[in-house]
Design a binder for these strands. Structure first.
Lengths: 217, 217
DNA sequence: GCTGCTCTATTTGTATACAAAATTTAACGT
DNA sequence: ACGTTAAATTTTGTATACAAATAGAGCAGC
């Protein structure tokens, strides 16, 4: 059986990423423990782990709160993603196997299907977001750099990033899908400069889309 | 008084960074606890924290070991540093104040003094390494990006990186100091492209120096 | 000599207990 | 009413206790 601490960690984590916990909500060790029917020890471990990932903030003797991100944070995150994910493309392109390219093409196809307007948006937005994560995750994995993977992971786990497509306009969504296609084409052609450039543009475009949205609200 | 867990964390950490713990040595919670006269709880917390930073590896039910790095890891680390630190230069240049530039110039001066051969190498190498960390750290701080700072920190904490100058040839050392000077000059001129390019070259040069050294041993 | 097994001794994972610190509540004076 | 201080409560930090898992020693069999 899996360790309790890991289970707790995953539970709290998905709760945060799904936005089930309100902003900067206090996470009291005892409360979480009793609500899960376990002791404080594994809860504590889970919270520290989440703190290391930046999903919660903990202050000494004052406990943990759900982390919050402002516009400045989001700008930082997307800037760094644009740099690191384009680097991932650079590394992945010369290593890409035919089956990996095919996998990416399939993800593109699925997303293009989901983007057709006859599908209800409540169903298709989470599905699109999930495919998006798979697309980006696959390329990062293909880069074969454990550390790069780790660095990007710490940047990606932010609710608004997870839910990217929720704020996309139909045009922005189309552009995003075209970017994906273009990235795969560039990788297929073995052109890492092309691939990494499109990826950079792709992430920066997402940044503008999201920052524009959040500043209005 | 500071938390015990933090003290333990710092102790183990510096022990690892100074190479006082042999490669992939097992870190038994109980042993560490009794040797410090405390309980296992804070030791556990410290080890998990170190694991999150990548300084130790922990496997479930099998405990923690000091992390190990091979040539491939070092290549990854320096590649990422070259990208992220050059980005730091890019951000720092337009923000740099006169006093910050002056600070960097002073660090350059100190390092140039230390590099003169009439100083015993046992004294000057640690001093050089310390100044080097200050130089890079200051620029990262000047970038004003918390996350960038965080990402680079997780890359820098590797014994061989900490001890960089130990493997430098006299020529490589001179080149390194010239790079530092050039970076400051570029920032002074407000030329972020120049500054970031030199930084990139600077870190990649260090990579070659260190990889060349470690492959022979 | 080597491989695979069982049993014991370590060692980790979790629960519980208590002390120290912070937060909340209540009381008090102005 | 308001703000300030002090007691009461909550919550974190550390220690200890015990159960579950692992590693290692010793031994049987080939």
């Amino acid at each position: 059986m899996a360790k309790i601490a890991t289970t707790v960690y995953e539970q709290i984590r998905t709760a945060i990423l799904n936005g089930e916990l309100s902003n900067s909500e206090r996470l009291v060790e005892e409360d979480l423990a009793v609500s899960m029917g376990i002791s404080r020890t594994p809860v504590r471990e889970a919270l520290r782990r989440l703190a290391a990932e930046g999903l919660v903030d903990v202050s000494p003797n004052r406990g943990a709160r759900v982390a919050e991100w402002d516009v400045h944070d989001l700008r930082e995150i997307f800037d760094l993603r644009s740099i690191l994910e384009s680097h991932a493309c650079e590394l992945a392109t010369p290593r890409a196997s035919a089956s990996e390219i095919e996998f990416l093409e399939n993800v593109c196809l699925e997303m293009e299907e989901l983007a057709k307007t006859n599908i209800a948006s409540e169903t298709r937005l989470p599905a699109l977001a999930a495919r998006n994560r798979i697309f980006h995750g696959k390329i990062i994995e293909m880069s074969n750099s454990t550390r790069l993977e780790l660095l990007i992971e710490t940047l990606i786990h932010v609710p608004i990033v997870m839910q990217t497509y929720k704020v996309y306009s139909p045009e922005a969504l189309q552009r995003s899908l075209h970017h994906h296609r273009e990235i795969v084409n560039a990788m297929k052609a073995g052109d890492e400069v092309w691939a990494s450039s499109v990826m950079r543009a792709h992430v920066l475009a997402a940044r503008e889309e999201i920052l524009g949205q959040t500043e209005e609200s």
